[in-house]
Nucleic acid binder design. Structure first.
Lengths: 354, 354
DNA sequence: TTGTAGGCGTTATCAA
DNA sequence: TTGATAACGCCTACAA
């Protein structure tokens, strides 16, 4: 079982030239006689040479500084997971000279985003990762970065009119479709299901609309469309009185309501309501393993959580950028993460995973 | 954002000694004056030194040869995935001097296993990974390997009476429990569910018994035990006539049979039967994304597949061993992989994942 | 007990 | 147009 690794030196010997010449061929630095070049290329091919990344990175111990533009986890706890994924990746990649600086903005405040995005740009990073939650506002920054040739990676929210190095995240349409399937699987035959958007600026949130589309399309399938009614509702701030009233109103309008789909990570708000009113026969499905969601999942109030692997999103974003900058690998422009279905019974595998 | 990496040289300078001395302290090779040792240790602590793994691996360009003892994918297609995971890991780790040689045995033939295991041992590998499907027969090999100080990693099947470097795989009990939950979620209230073992030597397959236990325990929960009946059946070779007869017999005995749980990757055999007899009201759940299972999942005959990430099992097994041998990391003795729930709707994310 | 010199594979510089 | 050489950080053999 020899694992004879081919080195530049081996190629040089075989071609009867020096390492330097081979190197120049490998990196297209010119200044090599054409016939020699051809010969070397052939030998490289023949011996099936692959550069030793270890040695390469050891040599080029450049430092890279990345900016991470993310919403404040203290304001919306969902963002804790991406942040910790970013930190995990940073730790692993510190060896390779990667350093990440977070720029944290308020996800409910456009000015805060503009300010932090400007700061991040100002700091002249070698790369940027961000969750572009404000569609309109982020576009001009994309232009700036493209101009300055700063590669950027998007996660969480996909934006069509842009050319990021890569997008990491979910397939929103399929996500809604899957949610519908999971609800449907446990539902009695004719009944009403609800798509609930909680406290979101829907027109500026393309991904939530896409989720809703996936969900409703599921119930529009030929064999289902006459048996299920899909209602929709944009619910206001859960702390307001209006929230409870809207729900009460909905139940009046749809007495046969048997399933609720919450399009963001706030299913716990509905769970709280269901538990309070002892509505045990309404199935509930939502997103993301926040502590409050986990609690309700364990108590059986939330039936399923779809996990978008938010930690992985942060983690892989940093990795994509590093693979590009440090290792010069080819980067896949889209990396969809699996849509994990989580119940009380397989929960632990998703929480413990470091 | 300086990423000032502390090197041995830095420490040596600060301590006014040479790099060699610092190195001896770092590796506890003794032969260092005690006061100097203390001083250096303090400085290491202070400067918060961490060795550069890149440089370390570049230096120690030892080659490691691993033996992979796995069942023949041509005989049971389940094993294709672990094999490809192993190959993927080997490819990535080739850089680090890892080479893997497969020893492939017939999973239905004990002699074949004994022969290949002996061969693998004979080849004096630096490490072994294996799927120990024959409980009794593998134990003596564990002893040999321990004696020879060859580290070994188990995957797929956990074996209590052994001290592998690590076990990679599923939590069988929880897996059965989850399967029960998924079936139950879509079932009408009083009915019968079946645990089906297909073509397995049950007494010698501890993990299948554990799965069954998890499954039955779910339906023994306080609020369920009077409403559901759990039947069990060991089915013979699906190609035999007996197989069909056994199923017909079962349906006679349990007219209210509404759900079937197949404990291994052969759900497609039941699916074939269900489709043939147009038994669309029986839910079916099984394991593993084999092409035939995928087909029936897409057709809606199989409702859910639980994925044990077999590719990941092979992949991580090699990685655990390499982390131990090459990088000298601490190895976690158990790595449970997530129990992924797969439906038609999220299938693609699990197939495409390279 | 301590220091020095060389090498792992790649790359950049400089001299030929 | 080429070849030789040094450096990245760590490790080891050998010399002092």
């Amino acid at each position: 079982m020899h694992n004879k690794i081919v080195r530049i030196k081996d190629i040089a010997e075989k071609a009867q030239v020096s390492k330097g010449t081979v190197d120049r061929v490998l990196h297209n630095r010119g200044r090599v006689a054409e016939d020699v070049r051809q010969k070397i290329l052939r030998i490289i091919e023949e011996m099936n040479y692959e550069p030793n990344l270890i040695a390469r990175t050891l040599k080029s111990n450049r430092n890279f500084y990345l900016a991470a533009l993310i919403p404040d986890p203290l304001i919306d706890p969902y963002w804790e997971a991406p942040k910790s994924g970013i930190e995990k990746a940073e730790k692993e990649l510190k060896q390779y000279g990667i350093a990440v600086k977070p720029f944290i903005f308020n996800p409910y405040n456009i000015d805060s985003f503009l300010k932090k995005a400007a700061e991040a740009t100002q700091s002249a990073p070698d790369g940027i990762i961000l969750a572009p939650v404000f569609y309109r506002e982020v576009l001009p920054f994309f232009e700036q970065w493209t101009q300055k040739e700063i590669p950027y990676v998007l996660f969480n929210t996909q934006i069509q009119d842009s050319t990021p190095l890569s997008y990491i995240g979910q397939d929103s349409y399929q996500s809604g479709f899957l949610a519908a399937k999971m609800l449907h699987y446990g539902l009695p035959d004719p009944c009403t299901v609800l798509v609930a958007h909680i406290n979101e600026d829907i027109p500026n949130s393309a991904h939530l609309i896409t989720k809703e589309k996936g969900f409703t399309d599921y119930f529009l399938q030929e064999n289902l469309k006459n048996r299920y009614t899909v209602a929709r509702q944009e619910l206001s701030n859960p702390n307001s009185l209006a929230f409870t009233e809207q729900l009460a109103q909905l139940r009046k309008e749809h007495p046969n309501l048997k399933g609720i789909y919450v399009t963001n990570s706030k299913a716990y708000e509905i769970a709280f309501y269901l538990e309070k009113h002892r509505l045990t026969n309404i199935k509930l499905i939502g997103y993301d393993l926040l502590p409050k969601n986990i609690q309700y999942l364990e108590d059986g109030v939330i039936n399923f959580i779809i996990n978008q692997n938010p930690k992985g999103q942060g983690y892989w974003s940093i990795y994509q950028l590093s693979d590009f900058l440090v290792f010069k690998k080819d980067i896949n422009p889209i990396k969809y993460l699996p849509l994990d279905i989580i119940t009380k019974e397989n929960l632990s595998y998703y929480i413990d995973a470091e």
